[in-house]
Design a protein around this nucleic acid. Structure first.
Lengths: 342, 342
DNA sequence: TGATAAAATGTAAAGGCTTGCATTTTGTAA
DNA sequence: TTACAAAATGCAAGCCTTTACATTTTATCA
């Protein structure tokens, strides 16, 4: 039953329209470079035959695919999902398609995926964060595939990026927490070794502590993987260990929501007994009870601006450069002043 | 500075290894069809040159791209993000890459995206739900691109799909709600005209009502777009209009969470004054306060099974067929018995 | 009207890979 | 050894489009 008649080619269209393949090609790609009457004939032929150009041939001949690859840790994290959604919407408006791959936060998979997308002819790549083996950057350079880093803006990095200053944003939040009298502070963080964003947030808190005359080493840090459950477990560990903090920072909202749940289970009042602070401001944050104090990140804006930057480069050769967006603390119900007497 | 030396080709590798391009090609694609010693020579050459095959050329010559397109309404909805994540992980294990596009729930954009992905050489397509212009199915058939529908299993549909019976699942939930004495019921739904899942859920409730001897027409329905905010607005409309329901179904958890928030704002106690029921069981559901009674959908399982089905078709010609997975009610804090006296 | 410039179109050469078929090499059994 | 089958390899024809460059047509102006 598979009478898959061969798809019509440029040649078929040319034959039907009585012109050369070159003219058909121009009709499709540069309509204003061909005579109106000819164009009409050709367009009719294209419609009649239901022609659509062969991607592979086009890619090969044009040495470009109009495809941009995005490699993220996981789509299950709303922040990436949202950013990608905006990224893709913007790409679409300019005729580009997005290729997505995810790494489950594993560097070796990321490397594999980068090679895979480059192999697939991605014209450019979107990557999360700066941290990765320098070999990979060299590889991309050799292959001539530009890469744009997002979710991080680090003034000390030379690589182009679209993002916010994780460190400064966290410092701003932490300064306020300290101002509220908290001196005994903990952080539930993602792995800081392979994740520059997590590291920057950690250091951001320490910056604020130093500014407030506290020893940064006093920050109690526990690292765990992404997930509500993990946040809950980490929180329990912290609260059942010796010195109970009065404020618990979390590397992201998902961990914070886990902490919140754990607090409820342990009968620890939030924010009366302990303040909980998240990061990202995803929907979860507003829905949590009490609503989560967190740092609002403009995920959609980042995705969109990243798309525009890449398109500018690919279409007009505008060089990439660092673009900073801003993340701001939002104060909601989970943060209160530290009790004066312990 | 752009000394982009041309990427090495099969030919370069062949030269270096002292074999023909055909042998190199076979080394890459069918390693066991070439002599071990030859293979070693070739592999060394490949490594030395840092060769990776040209995608366009490969696609053209092989008439296949090892790429599967997925078209979803939006990545911002956790259910799709999660399903896609699983889908992509499974594809990756079999050497396929995923191409994603989103439609913002707009049929005309969906059509455009389908054409775009087919034009890009997708070997197969993943689509959400059955509803769409028959012309599109014809187009896909003409192009010889198989499509698999997910998120819906409808025994009356002939098209292959991987999904659950939205109608039956909702009936099961509604039966329980009715058993608890609720007689005055409302539904906040997504647009039912263009969305077969939403429609099935609506009918599912009506089925249960009919079973319980109630007039299905008594179901109060309000349609709105996806989003927490929209859920809140719809809920307020329902509760401030004349006849207050004692149970409000929501087409998905996001709407339900909005309803929950609105209830809190309006000072309506959940579940004492009104029960709220969601659908999907995303993280939000567990975090909500009280935790949301909802229908659990195995999103990841669907994504994964869809991937396997498509791979089976593409690699071994195993025909697609309907695969049913099951969605089950989960009872949490937002559902209680109707007050006996009104 | 003729000369010349500009616009439109055509020609044909890549571009890098796969694969059917032909040829050579290797292995096996008598 | 020889004969033959099987395995390995090579040859070369596509696959379909883009794009210099060449050629033809059309437009313009003196």
């Amino acid at each position: 039953m598979n009478f898959k008649r061969p798809t019509p080619t440029l040649h078929d269209v040319a034959l039907k329209a009585g012109v050369s393949t070159a003219t058909v090609s121009r009709c499709v790609n540069f309509p204003d470079r061909v005579n109106t009457r000819t164009r009409e004939k050709v367009m009719n032929a294209i419609n009649d035959l239901d022609y659509s150009p062969n991607f592979g041939a086009k890619a090969m001949a044009a040495r470009r695919t109009n495809t941009i690859g995005a490699i993220i840790p996981t789509m299950e994290n709303a922040i990436f999902a949202r950013g990608l959604q905006a990224f893709q919407e913007a790409l679409r408006l300019h005729g580009y398609t997005m290729l997505v791959a995810s790494t489950s936060y594993r560097p070796e998979i990321e490397e594999e995926q980068i090679r895979a997308l480059v192999g697939r002819g991605a014209d450019a790549l979107l990557l999360i964060g700066h941290d990765r083996d320098p070999e990979i950057y060299k590889f991309l350079e050799r292959q001539g595939v530009p890469a744009l880093v997002v979710w991080a803006y680090d003034p000390t990095e030379t690589r182009p990026s679209v993002g916010f200053n994780n460190r400064a944003a966290m410092t701003e939040m932490a300064a306020e927490v300290l101002r509220l009298g908290h001196r005994n502070i903990a952080l539930i963080s993602a792995n800081t070794e392979q994740n520059d964003r997590a590291r920057a947030r950690l250091v951001g808190i320490q910056d604020a502590m130093a500014d407030a005359g506290q020893d940064p080493a006093d920050l109690q840090v526990i690292e765990t993987a992404y997930g509500i459950e993990n946040g809950a477990i980490a929180f329990e560990q912290i609260m059942t260990a010796g010195r109970r903090p009065t404020a618990v920072f979390c590397g992201n909202d998902v961990l914070a929501v886990g902490a919140l749940r754990s607090a409820r289970e342990l009968g620890i009042a939030v924010p009366d007994d302990v303040s909980i602070i998240g990061f990202d401001d995803i929907e979860l944050a507003q829905v949590a009870d009490p609503p989560l104090t967190t740092v609002h990140v403009p995920h959609r804006a980042m995705g969109q601006r990243a798309a525009l930057a890449l398109i500018g480069l690919l279409q007009n050769g505008e060089p990439l450069h660092a673009i900073e967006v801003f993340a701001k603390p939002v104060f909601r119900g989970t943060l209160a002043a530290a009790k004066t007497a312990q």
